Computed example of a mutant assay.
Amino acid sequence: MALPASFAVAALWLSGCAENGVMTPSGPIAAAEKSHMIWFFLWMLPVCLPILIGLPWICIKYRRKGGKGAYRPNWSHSTMAETLIWGGSTLTVILLGVLIWINTIGEDPYKHTGANPIKVQVVGSEWKWMFIYPGKMATVNKVVLPQHTPVEFDITAAGAMQSFWIPRLAGQIYAMPGMQTKMNMTTGDLAKLEGFNSQFNGAAFPLDKFEVDVVSKQDYESFLQSPRQPWNDLLTEFKKVATWNGPQIFDAPPKGWWDKASMDPSMVTNGGAAILDDHDPEQKSIDEAIHSELHLSQNKPQGDAQ
């Protein structure tokens, strides 16, 4: 009875992952990753199930008092058992290796998922995200994309290492200072999604999230015409604060700014934001915001998070 009960508890516990996780994909890349995960799980069952079932069976059958297993002190080898144990494991490893290799090459994040992708440049900094639509606009903690459209993200970081992840659209990819990476994907149906940093990197890690809106192409064009604030205001504030209070829209930076910033992170951050003194006013506001985010206290108000 314990085994079915354990599976039931695990299923109930993991059901919370469905709302904004890889098991509810909203794009073709994420859908393929969900399929891979299910197939890999099924292929691992021939290796895992005998262990999960056999271990309690052996413990019961050969227990010290009341066990019914035969005592065979001179038994040392079984060709059939060796063949099943090592042969099954070897076959599983080979099959999984081939499948992973094929799928990894087929879904290379650097490979375009369609013609004429929308280009978005990304800068991750503890604990906020900047998105640049080259020649059009820049946003903080919000990215808007048209539905069923290829997208190419150019990604870098300033300060601590980040991991860029929109679970319902594609897998994660790391972002580090002085380094450029790419993530190609295709959006799906209209949706309000959430992206975040999946690499723990300091005091405000639970707040390191951003909004992802997949909208109609008409709404996307309207978004590009949104009122915005001066670029210099964004850069000044981005360097000054550790976290950002809500998404905002700004003018685009000068041409080539992102390439320069990816090689010189000091253009984006003053550095050391991940290390704040416990009594620093900014750290106190971050602590309050984290308490509210994690529901640790229903009595504390949402902090300014700046």
Rank of each mutant, 00 (worst) to 15 (best):
M37A: 12
V22Q: 14
F164G: 01
E152M: 15
N74F: 14
P247N: 02
I118T: 04
Q180G: 11
K111C: 11
A175Q: 05
Q218Y: 07
T92F: 08
N103F: 09
D189V: 08
V214W: 03
I275Q: 13
E126V: 11
G87H: 02
S266Q: 11
Y174S: 13
E288Q: 15
S125D: 12
L145W: 05
V9C: 08
V123A: 03
T104S: 08
A274T: 09
K260E: 11
F40V: 11
K111G: 10
G88W: 00
P109A: 06
Q162L: 10
Q172W: 14
P134K: 06
H148W: 08
G195T: 02
A10K: 08
E194W: 12
L169T: 01
I60W: 09
M176W: 08
L91R: 09
K255G: 10
K142A: 08
L96I: 11
V241A: 03
G97Y: 00
G114Y: 03
A158D: 04
K128G: 01
S292Y: 12
E288H: 12
L235W: 00
W165N: 09
I118S: 00
F7G: 10
L145M: 07
A30Y: 01
A289V: 06
S35Y: 05
A273L: 14
H295G: 14
A115P: 07
M263E: 13
S285F: 03
V212R: 02
V151M: 01
M137R: 04
P146C: 06
W129A: 02
S226G: 05
I118D: 01
S15F: 12
K136T: 14
N20K: 15
G272Y: 02
N141S: 03
A305E: 09
M80V: 15
M267P: 06
Q147I: 11
P150G: 02
G21L: 03
F250K: 00
M23L: 15
N184V: 07
H295M: 14
L296G: 05
R64S: 09
A115F: 07
S89N: 14
A2P: 10
K65H: 15
S226Q: 07
P146F: 05
V212D: 00
A204S: 02
M176C: 09
L45K: 06
K68F: 07
F196H: 15
T236S: 15
P25A: 00
